[in-house]
Design a binder for these strands. Structure first.
Length: 513
RNA sequence: GGUCCGUUCGUCUAGGGGUUAGGACGUAUCCCUUUCACGGAUAAAACACGGGUUCGAUUCCCGUACGGACUACCA
């Protein structure tokens, strides 16, 4: 039997969870469930200067909303707790020290100014990549260049220092990526990355390797932006002697801007008018607001389906997948290699699909909720009729209310273009007669069929062709030139309201024949 | 600049040495219809370029171009 699959999603609580991060979380979840393994959430808050209050809760709420809650997390600790790196702080130093002892890391005392001076010197000497590496470290202030006595003294006096990885000068580092195959990088292009910062916190690189090891992570599924540092991570596993349990890597293609160039960013959403975050978010420091898919009316099933297909496909022609179906169909092998442009039109289409397959009761509740908020009471029967008429033509839940405005309130003005083109003497004559009939009281129930029959007979009695005046009738009653089946609208409004609206139109609209 | 990754219709993609290069979104047209949608049908639309390898390359290899990521005591 093989080892249980354990994957982790490891965001930093530095703000709202980006939609790309959410997709990474989804793929981790899908893989874990597919393999019968565990999906773990670890908060990577080693940069105290970037911590943003509320960001953790935002992450949690986003995952919960999508239905991909982690099996283990800070809020649901498993056997490898804690799940917040700030709470694991105490354990990292011993690992860094272990590397120092093994000769794979060293203390460095260089100040920010000295580092800057080094880079300037190197740049002046036309060194292409000024970096702290196997060559330049010999000229810097570190435990490799300082005398044993001075090192002891600096350490004892509490001089601030970092611990850097000591990378080999010449070594081909190979790593196998589940999505990209073998990736080869020469160690001479890597620099001596900082492992422990002077504030006593580890950097991503150290914390990540140590925690993945300690938490029994079997597969690291993360964004492509980590690919360049993956060779360093492989080296660290080797330094620790953990190579035989090193997780497998899968670097996901990035989500790109819809118009082509670059990684999708927060600004794109603002600019193009669609969200790039799952939920609304207000930055606690700047007060800046970002809108979310959820509040924009996207259904969680739709966002899930949309996200899953950004870089993955099942290999056949199915497009509509529930979370369970995604789990069933998912495989890392079918994740694409190239960056994916974010196309909101597809998300809208999916949303329409899921909205239409929602229950009548659910859709009515959307309408009623918005009506309540606007202080309008809609009889349940009327709401049901509205939803039935609208369900094939909405994209978002809020459309039920928005697109049924004219059913709740008589038009105060009329589409001028339609009025000019369609309003004529015949229409006025017919509607005048129709309104009169409606006002005189009707024997039969007033439904779409009887409303139509009555309109037809009225037209016939006046020698008017119905087709010529339907648009005018629509204009008179709704103020608009297009929309729902007019007779159904009449039925919902009822005879008295229809007559009243016709009277108003007759009084308001000028006849231009 | 350097390192690494990538490149099939506008977009998401299937495919893979011999195919009419398939699907979906979007777009257009037609049908349905009192309008608009829905639905149905149809159409336009792609293998970045140049060399190899091969009987044959969109598919394999190498270059070029283009795009992207990374290049912090951020993750």
């Amino acid at each position: 039997m093989t080892k249980e699959v354990r994957v982790r999603f490891a965001p930093s609580p530095t703000g709202a969870l980006h939609i790309g991060g959410l997709r990474t979380a989804l793929y981790n979840y899908l893989f874990a469930k597919k393999m019968g393994g565990k999906f773990i959430l670890r908060i990577e808050d080693t940069d105290q200067t970037r911590f943003v209050p509320g960001a953790e809760e935002y992450i949690q709420e986003s995952l919960d909303w999508l239905g991909i809650s982690p099996d283990e997390s800070p809020w649901k600790p498993g056997s490898v707790a804690p799940y917040r790196q700030s709470e694991r702080k105490a354990s990292y130093m011993q690992y860094a020290l272990e590397l120092v002892e093994k000769g794979h890391a060293y203390y460095a005392f260089d100040t920010a100014e000295e580092l800057e001076a080094m880079r300037e010197r190197l740049t002046a000497a036309r060194v292409l990549q000024p970096q702290y590496n196997s060559i330049t470290r010999s000229q810097m202030k570190n435990s490799l260049t300082l005398s044993g006595a001075e090192l002891k003294e600096r350490l004892a006096s509490g001089d601030p220092y970092v611990i850097r990885a000591k990378l080999p000068l010449k070594e081909e580092v190979r790593l196998h990526d589940l999505i990209r195959g073998w990736v080869m990088v020469h160690s001479s292009t890597l620099d001596d990355k900082v492992l422990m910062k002077s504030d006593g916190m580890p950097t991503y690189h150290l914390a990540n390797i140590v925690d993945d090891h300690l938490m029994g992570i079997t597969h690291v599924i993360r964004g492509e932006e980590w690919l360049p540092s993956a060779p360093l991570h492989v080296l660290l596993y080797r330094f620790f002697g953990w190579e035989d349990t090193m997780p497998q890597f899968a670097h996901l293609p990035l989500l790109l801007k819809p118009d082509g160039n670059g990684k999708l960013s927060k600004r794109d959403g603002d600019k193009l008018g669609f969200p790039v975050f799952p939920l609304n978010w207000v930055d606690p420091f700047s007060g800046e607001k970002s809108s979310g898919f959820r509040e924009n009316g996207y259904l969680q099933e739709a966002l899930l389906n949309f996200l899953a297909f950004l870089g993955w496909n099942p290999g056949d022609e199915r497009e509509i997948f529930s979370l369970e179906e995604l789990v069933e169909a998912f495989s890392i092998e079918r994740i694409g290699k190239s960056g994916t442009k974010f196309d909101i039109a597809k998300a809208k289409w999916l949303n329409e699909h899921y909205l239409r397959s929602s229950s009548q009761v659910q859709l009515i509740s959307y309408l009623q909720k918005d009506a309540d908020a606007a202080g309008v009471a809609i009889a349940q029967e009327k709401a049901a009729a509205i939803v039935a008429l609208l369900r094939e033509r909405v994209t978002f839940p809020a459309d039920f209310w928005r697109d049924s405005q004219f059913l709740h309130q008589a038009p105060s003005d009329f589409d001028p273009e339609v009025a000019t083109k369609k309003w004529n003497g015949d229409a006025a004559t017919l509607l005048q007669a129709y309104a009169q009939t409606l006002e005189s009281g009707l024997p039969a129930p007033f439904d779409a069929a009887s409303a139509k029959a009555l309109l037809e007979s009225t037209a016939e009695a006046n020698g008017i062709k119905l087709g010529k005046v339907m648009q005018a009738a629509r204009l008179a009653v709704t103020g608009l030139g297009a929309g729902l089946d007019l007779m159904e609208v009449f039925a919902i409004l009822g005879p008295q309201e229809v007559a009243k609206r016709i009277r108003f139109a007759l009084d308001t609209l000028a006849i231009v024949d």
